[in-house]
Design a protein around this nucleic acid. Structure first.
Length: 593
RNA sequence: GCCGGAGUAGCUUAGUUGGUAAAGCAAUGCUUUCGUAAAGCAGAGACCGCGAGUUCAAUUCUCGCCUCCGGCUCCA
């Protein structure tokens, strides 16, 4: 066991060396075609490597093929990586035409090292394979795509051209990855959303403004009802707010100063400026302040499923995952300081219940804390922060899941717990967020009367469990590959008569299902059974019932289930009375599994 | 916003070295009445993303714009 583990580790570090070595090879090949291209940096990444260049004229995808061929041509001549150390002056002289390398050299403290393979020398701290010609198979890597990337990741800097490559231990692993990626793309929520009639985005309405089609709206409504009822069980109070507010509200909250560019504004006939809400906190604060509060009222949890509007950078918008209008399952918890811990425990409990129900196992937990080197940019005193961070840490530790602590990622008003889930092509999206806020209670002067009869400051928790219905649904579509569990399925049962003469019985069964709250459809089309079954399967409907002479005579229904969607053919459940089937459906819908 | 790619019937795609477009599926009509992943036939359906320019002629070439995809940056 131990031995295996250490072997794995060795392999991992070896593949990193391979990927890093390939980045050098890529730069060498690029230099062959574009001698004046400036190579900047080129690290190994998860599935391969990349290298950023400044080209004097743009290159495109079509150029990748020849560069890849050149890499394969050079590879056999690379028998080693020879490293060495140089002085800063020598290094500056060698890379005198490359301002990017010069910038790096000027920043280096300590040794400056370079590595040479074949005719190509690069500034590099090391980590290569000993003999590329022997240790790298030309079949195990492939240039993937081309992209723009700012120098040092800063949008104020010049945009460079990044070439991404894929690299694995073997050709087989590379092929496997490519097939996997292809499979993942099939469950893309944008593609399935269209195929299954879930949502649409109209150019005329505007980009980033998705609209739910009837079937998608069923899923959304079910999600909304679900999260509402879970919150109501825990004693949350639901409220409703308007979607615009006077500019002054956001000046007071500080949002306008910080995020004004992302908040659409409008003027009324008197010239008064209103802002479309991009967050709900200030409205909920005003609801809190509408009445005096006693310590006996706390925790007070104001919840709402409500749409916010955010002007995102246009290149960022993507299907349901990044949009301009999104409905949050937002909650603001108004609590006493000594309730922070129990409240977070409760919220994490709710979150685990929700994630568990959907079978989300592949998520990342982050605790975002202050940047310890820059405490000044956060609100509140040290002791409260330390306490708050300790509580988050303790609660997440108790939970027992792996997590990372992200320094400097806290909100200016407090630390937070963020949960990120991957989409079908591996990108991470934040869903749940739990934020501890000591700033806005001061700002909005939010108080309660304590046992001692004196005024005390409340603490606010900003919480969204699903995050936004849009993003959650996007992730859910990909997670289930469109095969939603029964309770979420837009169409739960399709009634399929074998021949026209069975239509009346089919209609009768359909009516029965509808009357009992089952979302059913009846397929009366003039088509053969095979085609109707095929359609039901393509529509990813969980159950369909086939009705022919046999069923009409026995007064039963023959039930088939979608079963395991990855294998052909449904799962035949046999014949039963309609009432028995209805009972099974209602049980499954209720249990939501 | 920036870099690269793309936009042809509802969908998936073909095509034109410049002469306004082809197919399958879907939809419609007729035939067929069928027991488990696509029955047959027919007609219809396209300002070839939008706007300019070049040309006798532009879906095709050039420019601008819009939208989408991947990436960068950002993300209360």
């Amino acid at each position: 066991m131990n031995k295996e583990k250490s072997l794995d580790k060795l392999e991992t570090s070896n593949i990193e060396s391979v990927r890093h070595s390939l980045a050098h090879l890529l730069a060498a090949a690029v230099k062959e075609f574009y001698p004046d291209a400036k190579a900047t940096i080129g690290p190994a990444i998860d599935n391969g490597f990349y290298y950023d260049f400044e080209f004097s004229s743009p290159i495109s995808d079509k150029d990748l093929e020849k560069i890849e061929e050149k890499m394969k041509e050079i590879l056999p001549s690379w028998k080693s990586f020879e490293g060495g150390e140089v002085s800063a002056d020598e290094a500056r002289e060698y890379w005198k035409n490359n301002e990017y390398k010069i910038e790096l050299i000027n920043e280096f403290e300590g040794k400056i090292t370079f590595y040479k393979s074949g005719d190509f020398t690069d500034l590099c701290r090391g980590g290569h394979v000993a003999d590329p010609s022997k240790e790298i198979s030309p079949e195990s890597f492939k240039l993937d795509r081309i992209a723009g990337a700012y120098w040092r990741g800063d949008e104020k800097n010049k945009m460079l051209t990044r070439i991404y490559g894929l690299a694995f231990e073997s050709k087989e692993k590379l092929d496997e990855y490519l097939i996997q990626r292809e499979e993942a793309e099939k469950r893309d929520h944008k593609k399935l959303g269209k195929e299954l009639g879930l949502f649409t985005i109209s150019d005329l309405v505007g980009k980033g403004l998705p609209m739910y089609l009837p079937k998608g709206n069923i899923i959304r409504t079910e999600l909304e009802n679900f999260i509402r009822s879970e919150k109501e069980k825990l004693g949350y109070s639901f409220v409703t707010i308007p979607h615009i507010a006077k500019k002054e509200l956001y000046i007071k909250s500080g949002h306008l100063g910080k995020y004004g560019a992302m908040m659409p504004t409008m003027k009324d006939e008197n010239g008064e400026e209103f802002v479309m809400k991009a967050m709900n906190c200030p409205h909920h604060f005003e609801i809190y302040n509408a009445e005096p509060h006693s310590y006996r009222d706390l925790p007070l949890r104001l919840a709402e499923n409500t749409v916010v509007y955010r002007n995102e950078k246009s290149g960022e918008l993507s299907g349901l995952l990044r949009v301009k209008s999104l409905c949050q399952d937002d909650t603001h918890h108004f609590i006493k300081q000594d309730q922070i811990q129990s409240e977070i425990k409760m919220i994490l409990g709710l979150m685990q219940k929700v994630y568990g129900l959907f079978g989300f196992n592949d998520y990342k937990v982050e605790i975002s804390v202050r940047d310890p080197k820059n405490k000044g940019k956060y609100f509140g005193d040290d002791s409260v922060w330390q306490k708050a961070e300790a509580i988050l840490l303790e609660e997440v530790t108790n939970w027992g899941v792996p997590f990372s602590v992200e320094e400097g990622e806290a909100a200016f008003y407090g630390p937070k717990i963020d949960i990120k889930v991957k989409d079908s092509i591996g990108r991470e999206w934040q869903l749940t967020t739990i934020q501890l806020d000591f700033n806005q209670p001061e700002n909005f002067d939010m108080n309660y009367t304590g046992e001692d009869g004196k005024k005390h400051r409340v603490v606010v928790l900003h919480v969204a469990i699903l995050g936004s219905f849009e993003r959650f649904m996007g992730i859910l579509i990909e997670h289930y590959a469109g095969n939603f569990p029964l309770w979420l399925s837009p169409v739960q049962v399709k009634v399929i008569p074998v021949r026209e003469s069975h239509n009346a019985y089919a209609q009768e069964i359909y009516d029965l299902l509808k009357e009992n709250g089952v979302r059913a459809e009846v397929d009366l089309a003039d088509e053969n059974l095979g085609k109707k079954v095929r359609q039901a399967k393509n529509e990813k409907i969980p159950y369909w019932i086939v009705l022919g002479d046999k069923e009409v005579e026995s007064k039963e229904v023959t039930v088939e289930a979608r079963g395991n969607p990855s294998v052909d053919g449904g799962e035949k459940l046999g014949s039963m009375s309609a009432s028995k089937f209805l009972e099974l459906l209602q049980k499954e819908i209720k249990e939501k599994n």
